[in-house]
Design a protein around this nucleic acid. Structure first.
Length: 355
DNA sequence: AAGACGTGGAG
DNA sequence: TCTCCAAGTCT
């Protein structure tokens, strides 16, 4: 790894960035704006950070409001019914986060007296909190000078220092460079400023360098290669999978099951159904194909989910352990998007005879 | 240490 | 339409 000589102006980067942030920080529900006398609430900062993992601010905002209204502090969340938390998370994706959220809240309650630890190391040991989140909470909630590196920071720093190494190999150099510009004062604002800059100006495509407060310090900009950084490996193609889901209806209610705790949509309510494979097998015996299918794209595969009616009194339906959920209040069942979409498709096809 | 793990918005 | 990707973590 090549370590560059410290730029005499390097210390100026944080100053410039914080000045920009002071005038341009976005107001976000979990954020304490610069200049405010208020102190950030570790619970809300933690919750927002977990929700923001791989998720856009716009998607998080309504969920954050819903969670904080219902569970105003970490102990309240620790005491919550797991199923209710999972249902409240439905639609946000990456459901392991919700499982870890509950586990983390309970650890904070049981091992830390209901108070979030304030060190990066202690935070890092909590479920769902990795390198990034531990540093972010330490910096933002506790004013610790932690080096916060997320995808925004990686992009900004790779450009600022013209680090051409492809990710993930380049992460070491990027982290070192990020550490070299992280200030002792206002580390939390600095981290948030880097992320704001990355999401609003130093964007993945078409960075708006003319308005960037760091442009004159940016080696990538000077070399005309900013937009191309950081280099990333090519993606793998996304396979297509197919499977059956069953619509079991009785007295205006449908049968919902709970998916296993790990794996896809783990711990979430779902329509019963079969495995997902490369090819669509024949509709299982006793089922009556509807001809309706929904297409849904996950991160590493696409799914074509075919829907079949299954008589409530059938042997197969009898073997399904689940709960009967009133169709008219299906919105409140907390179904992940795949199954919400499937239910919507059935409803759109019009009412059918119960069996 | 790659691959698993959701979803919706932007270009 | 299609590709990229967003405040990553876990195994």
């Amino acid at each position: 790894m090549t370590v560059e000589q410290p730029d005499p102006k390097r210390g100026d980067i944080a100053v410039r960035l914080l000045d920009w942030y002071d005038g341009s920080a976005r107001a976000l529900p979990w954020r304490v704006l610069p200049g405010s006398a208020k102190r950030g609430d570790p619970y809300r900062i933690w919750l927002s950070e977990i929700m923001l993992q791989q998720t856009t601010v716009a998607a998080v905002i309504p969920y954050f409001g819903k969670f904080t209204a219902r569970w105003p502090d970490v102990v309240a969340l620790a005491e919550a019914d797991e199923g209710e938390v999972m249902a409240a998370w439905a639609g946000l994706g990456y459901y392991a986060r919700a499982r870890n959220l509950i586990a983390c809240a309970r650890r904070v309650r049981d091992e830390h007296g209901g108070v979030f630890p304030d060190s990066e190391a202690a935070l890092r040991n909590l479920p769902g909190i990795g390198d990034y989140t531990a540093a972010a909470i330490a910096a933002i909630a506790f004013d610790r000078p932690a080096t916060v590196v997320d995808a925004n920071v990686e992009r900004v720093v790779a450009r600022l220092f013209a680090i051409r190494e492809t990710l993930p190999q380049g992460k070491r150099a990027i982290r070192a460079a990020a550490a070299s510009i992280t200030p002792e004062r206002r580390p939390g604002d600095f981290a948030q400023a880097m992320m704001d800059l990355g999401s609003r100006i130093c964007t993945p495509r078409n960075p708006d360098c003319p308005t960037c407060p760091l442009a004159e310090h940016c080696a990538g900009h000077r070399l005309g290669i900013a937009a191309a950084l950081p280099a990333k490996p090519a993606r793998r193609p996304r396979p297509q999978r197919r499977g059956w889901a069953y619509w079991v209806e009785r007295d205006g209610a449908i049968l919902l099951v709970r998916r296993p705790g790990k794996g896809m949509l783990g711990g979430m309510r779902a329509l019963p159904g079969g495995a997902w494979d490369d090819e669509l097998g024949p509709a299982p015996v006793e089922t009556d194909p509807t001809g309706i299918a929904v297409q849904h794209v996950f991160t590493h595969f696409a799914l074509e989910l075919h829907l079949a009616r299954l008589p409530a009194q059938s042997r197969l339906a009898g073997e399904l352990a689940g709960e009967w959920w009133p169709i008219e209040s299906l919105d409140g069942a907390g179904l992940p998007t795949l199954y919400a979409k499937a239910a919507r498709a059935i409803a759109a096809a019009g009412p059918m005879e119960g069996s």
